[in-house]
Amino acid sequence: MVPLSYYLVLSGFLFACGVTGFLIKRNIITIFMSIELMLNGVNLSFVAFAAHWHALAGQIFVFFVMVVAAAEAAVGLAIIIAVYRTRETLNIDQVNLLKL
């Protein structure tokens, strides 16, 4: 028997790691992977709450999150390839055309 709060703490930790990676990483692909880590953390809390409240809808939502993540990964990686083709770098510091 594992309390719900343990799952929530683990989920929060994964999300926090994702946010930290998003902020401190300089490689555009690693930043993208940090976003996936955040989505995984959210998925864990969805499943934990689904088990806790005996509501299967939570698991359906995980399914939808996965679909959106797959679509996002396909488009995002295509954008990364396009960026690399024009800039020839993966360093986020050098992709600063929109920066003030």
Binding site: V67, A70, A71, A74, A78
Partner: peptide, 13 residues
């Protein structure tokens, strides 16, 4: 959504 993502990936890549 998946269809749009596929087309977007093909166009972008």
């Amino acid at each position: 959504l998946i269809l749009i993502a596929i087309m977007g990936a093909v166009v972008l890549a």
